[in-house]
Amino acid sequence: MPAATSSSSSPAEPDGPPIDLSVLIPVKDEAENVGPLHREILRAMGPIPLRFEVIFVDDGSTDGTAARLREIQAADPGHVRVAFLRTNCGQTAALSAAMDLARGAVLVPMDGDGQNDPGDIPRLLEKLDEGFDVVSGWRKDRKDTLLTRKVPSRIANRLVARLSRVPLHDFGCTLKAYRREVLRGVRLYGEMHRFIPVFASWQGARVAELVVNHRPRRSGRTKYGLGRTFNVVLDLILIRFYQSYAQRPIHFFGRVGLYAVALSFGSFGLMLFYKYAYPALGFPNKDFVETPLPQVAITLFLAGVQMIVTGVVAEMVMRTYYESQDKPTYLLGEVLQSAAEAGSDADAAPITGGRPGPGRTVG
């Protein structure tokens, strides 16, 4: 039996034989669940004539999960690959590592606790074949506690769907299917893995939803509770800002700054009213110093100037980000042109610094 190979280098482009499907499983302290999950995946994939791999990423487990994963990989080296993070980095980081290691044309992430049903993988692939780029699982009959998991999740999902304009019911379901090309350029930070369909949709991906089976946890303990909902809200604010102002931050910060400056001038005008117009109208003289208007005017003016300066700095950072990495500020689909033009375009340097996208030649 071939021995497992190990490498500590950072993954670059996926290598090795072509793979149709990569199942990505980040795990943390799931020693009792990874074995049954591996066997279920093999049973689910048995009838499907696809070349597949199962990538487990151990996120700093301390309960013997690492040893169990080594045993699984040694027993099934043809399908299983295992990566070990040096310390606990979180589910999003572990999933990102699995994506970097994956070689499949289709990526299917799932939880390592056994609550996602591997039997749904063929159904996800069938839905993907209907012309979609992303198929997101929907745990319609969710087997979790009502108050601490289900109710906060429903509220968060509705907020995400409304603000992102991606009409999904269950962003938190890890079980999804992605075509590899829609994830190119997507980098994950914090706890952003649940928003991958949102990022893909912004890049023009066709997103669908499929009801999947959700099972009670067989063993082990959940890593998430009610406090996770607050993280979702904060991440939602970030992606909303990213969606609307990532390429024009001055429009956000500058607008807030101008509003604050305008309010400061309004407060100053009210001060003048109390000083001059108020006595002229026959009212008793009222010294504006007795009001909070001077402090309000000064505070708003300084805050407004600071917001405008912040916008200018953010604009410089944004431009440095795009230009230093030669990142285009557009998403190019296909280009219809003659074969001669396609050849000349390939030799020419892009004027705007954007990389030419995939094109189709006609001629």
Rank of each mutant, 00 (worst) to 15 (best):
K140C: 09
V312T: 01
I250E: 11
S164K: 04
A280F: 11
L263T: 03
L281P: 12
S264P: 06
E290S: 14
R215I: 07
L128N: 01
L147A: 15
G64Q: 05
L107Y: 07
Y274C: 10
K140A: 12
A260M: 05
S264M: 02
M271E: 08
L128V: 04
M1N: 02
K143S: 14
A205E: 04
F265H: 01
F268A: 07
T310Y: 08
L24I: 05
A262I: 01
E71R: 09
V27R: 01
I351S: 15
K28S: 06
S61R: 00
G185L: 12
V166W: 04
R355T: 13
G119R: 12
Y242G: 09
D120K: 11
L101V: 06
N116P: 15
A314C: 07
H193A: 11
R255I: 06
A303K: 08
T291S: 05
L300F: 05
V261G: 03
L270P: 00
G353K: 09
M318V: 15
A280I: 10
L175W: 10
Y321E: 14
G282N: 08
M316S: 11
A303L: 11
M1V: 07
R123W: 02
H251P: 07
L302V: 12
N231I: 10
K176V: 09
G78Q: 12
F132Y: 12
G35H: 15
N231K: 14
L293D: 02
G112V: 08
Y224Q: 13
R184S: 10
A44K: 05
L124D: 01
I308K: 05
E53Y: 10
T352M: 15
M99E: 05
S219Y: 13
T174Q: 15
D141M: 05
G363K: 07
R149D: 10
G225R: 12
A12R: 10
E315H: 08
G104L: 06
R158H: 07
M45P: 01
V134E: 03
G220R: 05
V296I: 13
D63I: 02
I196W: 03
G333E: 01
Y259N: 04
L42N: 01
L238N: 10
Y278W: 14
K286V: 13
N157I: 07
G114I: 07
L175T: 13
W138M: 04
P36A: 05
D63V: 02
R103V: 13
A93G: 00
E40H: 09
G131I: 10
D345F: 15
D76L: 06
E341T: 14
L281C: 11
G114H: 04
D58G: 09
R139W: 08
P118A: 13
V296M: 10
D141W: 05
Q306W: 14
R180N: 07
V256Q: 06
H38G: 07
V313R: 02
G114Q: 03
V160T: 07
A340K: 10
V160A: 03
G225T: 12
E32R: 13
E130Q: 11
L69C: 09
V82G: 01
P167R: 04
N88G: 03
A260I: 00
S61Q: 01
E32W: 10
G363A: 12
S164P: 00
P77E: 12
E30G: 10
G343R: 12
V305T: 13
